[in-house]
Design a protein around this nucleic acid. Structure first.
Length: 386
DNA sequence: CATCCGTGGTC
DNA sequence: TGACCAAGGAT
C-alpha cells in the first residue's frame, strides 16, 4: 500500500512525510520523533509491573522470559492491570515455567483462574502450554508462529514478538487505538478504523526498542491518554496530537452506540449439609462460564415462581428463599433468586458435595460466589468464620 | 463481520 | 449510581 495515502495533518501543522519509519526523524511531528519522545517519557515514567523488565535493564540486554510475557498478556486480555497482578503472582508461584503449567491439570488451572473472567482463556492457556512444552518448552519467536497457538490472536502475538523477542511488531490494543485515534483525529468509528490505526502504528514502530515502544504506548494510554479526562498537560506527545489542537481529545476514539443488555432471570439452589458442605456441579465445557463450577440453577430465562422452582431444583426439599443477587455479564444482566435448604442427602447424579474448607478453592465464577454468599455468608471466603 | 465471552474499577 | 470500558480471541 502507498504510505503517502495515509498522511495526516499533525498538531504542529506539518504533514507526515511519506516513507519508511526511520526516515525524516528531524522533522517535528514525524513518526520517528513520536517514538523518540515516547521512549524518553517511558524511561522516566514507566510503570513497574510484576511481569515487566525495567527499560534500564532492557538496555543492558536483559530479556524478559517469554513464558511470563505470554502469561501476563493472556491475563491482560480485556482485563485491568490491577486485577491481573495477584493472579500473575499466584500462577508463576505455582507454575514457574511452561513445563510446570503443562504438567498441571486443567481443573487446577481453572481453579486458579476463577474470578478473572473469560474462562476460555484458561482452557486455551493450558492447551497452549501443552503444545509449547511438547515442542521443547520454547515459544515461537515470530508473530505468525505465535498466532497459531490457542488463545493467541493478532494483538497477543505482536505483543510477545515485540516484548519478548525484540521484533518490530505493530502492537495494537485498546490503549493504542485510543492514543492513535487522538494523535491523528481519526473520525472513523473504531470498528471500521482498525486497519487505518494499524497502518499508523506500523509507521511509528522504531527498529530499536520495539518492545519498550509497545509498552510505552500502553502505559501512555493507561496513565495519560485515558478514556476520560486525559492528562494532556503531562503528555509527551501533546505537540504531536491533532485531537488536542481540535480542542476535544475525549471525542476520540469514535465508538458506535452499544446494544442494550437484556435482563434474564432464574433461580439458584444452595443445598448445605450440617458439616457445611455445599452441593455443586460442573458447567458444560463451552459457552458461558464454560468448564466452571456452579450451584444448581434453573435456566436463565425462566420465570421465577413456585412451579419453576420446584421443577428445576436438584431434588425435592424444603427450599426457602434466601435473597436475590444481580450480576452483569458482557451482553446481558442476570437476576437470580436464591433458595436454600438443609439436607443430608447423597449428591444427585452429576453433582458433588464440596467440603466447607474446599469451597474457596473451587472454580467458582463470581456470580456463583454471590449466590453462595447470599445463602451462607462467608462460605466462599478463605477463612470462614464459625 | 457480528456475536459471544466476566469482572472490577472509575467517574 | 449506573454507564463505560480494560494489554482480545474464537467462531
Amino acid at each position: 500500500m502507498a504510505l503517502h495515502d495515509q498522511t495526516r495533518k499533525t498538531a504542529s501543522g506539518d504533514t507526515s512525510k511519506a516513507g519508511s519509519r526511520d526516515s525524516s526523524k528531524a522533522a517535528s511531528g514525524d513518526s520517528g520523533g513520536i517514538a523518540s519522545r515516547l521512549l524518553g517519557w517511558y524511561d522516566a515514567h514507566h510503570r513497574d509491573l510484576p511481569w515487566r523488565i525495567a527499560p534500564r535493564d532492557v538496555l543492558r540486554g536483559i530479556r524478559p522470559d517469554p513464558y511470563r510475557v505470554w502469561l501476563s498478556e493472556v491475563m491482560l486480555q480485556q482485563t485491568t492491570v490491577e486485577a491481573v497482578k495477584s493472579y500473575f503472582r499466584a500462577f508463576v508461584g505455582k507454575w514457574p515455567d511452561v513445563e510446570a503449567l503443562a504438567a498441571a491439570s486443567t481443573e487446577d488451572v481453572m481453579k486458579a483462574w476463577a474470578g478473572l473472567g473469560y474462562y476460555s482463556r484458561a482452557r486455551n492457556l493450558k492447551a497452549c502450554a501443552d503444545l509449547v512444552a511438547r515442542q521443547g518448552g520454547r515459544f515461537p519467536a515470530t508473530e505468525s508462529g505465535l498466532k497459531e497457538l490457542p488463545g493467541i490472536g493478532a494483538y497477543t502475538a505482536a505483543a510477545i514478538a515485540a516484548i519478548a523477542f525484540d521484533h518490530p511488531a505493530a502492537v495494537v490494543d485498546g490503549n493504542v487505538e485510543r492514543v492513535v485515534s487522538r494523535l491523528f483525529s481519526i473520525a472513523t468509528p473504531l470498528s471500521e478504523a482498525k486497519a487505518e490505526i494499524r497502518a499508523f502504528v506500523e509507521r511509528m514502530v522504531p527498529q530499536a526498542r520495539p518492545g519498550d515502544f509497545a509498552q510505552a504506548m500502553m502505559d501512555l494510554g493507561a496513565t495519560i491518554c485515558t478514556p476520560r479526562r486525559p492528562r494532556c498537560m503531562l503528555c509527551p506527545l501533546r505537540e504531536d496530537c491533532s485531537a488536542i489542537l481540535a480542542g476535544d481529545p475525549e471525542r476520540f476514539p469514535v465508538r458506535l452506540p452499544k446494544a442494550e443488555k437484556p435482563l434474564r432471570r432464574g433461580a439458584a439452589f444452595v443445598a448445605v449439609r450440617a458439616d457445611g458442605a455445599i452441593l455443586l456441579r460442573k458447567r458444560a465445557e463451552k459457552g458461558l462460564l464454560g468448564g466452571m463450577t456452579e450451584v444448581p440453577t434453573t435456566g436463565w430465562t425462566a420465570r421465577v415462581d413456585g412451579a419453576t422452582t420446584d421443577a428445576a431444583a436438584p431434588f425435592p426439599a424444603d427450599w426457602r428463599p434466601a435473597g436475590r443477587i444481580g450480576h452483569v455479564f458482557t451482553h446481558f444482566a442476570l437476576e437470580l433468586d436464591v433458595f436454600k435448604t438443609a439436607t443430608e442427602s447423597a449428591a444427585p447424579a452429576g453433582h458433588f458435595w464440596s467440603l466447607a474448607h474446599e469451597i474457596s478453592g473451587e472454580a467458582l465464577p463470581t456470580v456463583m460466589k454471590k449466590v453462595i454468599e447470599a445463602a451462607i455468608p462467608g462460605a466462599t471466603k478463605k477463612q470462614r468464620p464459625l
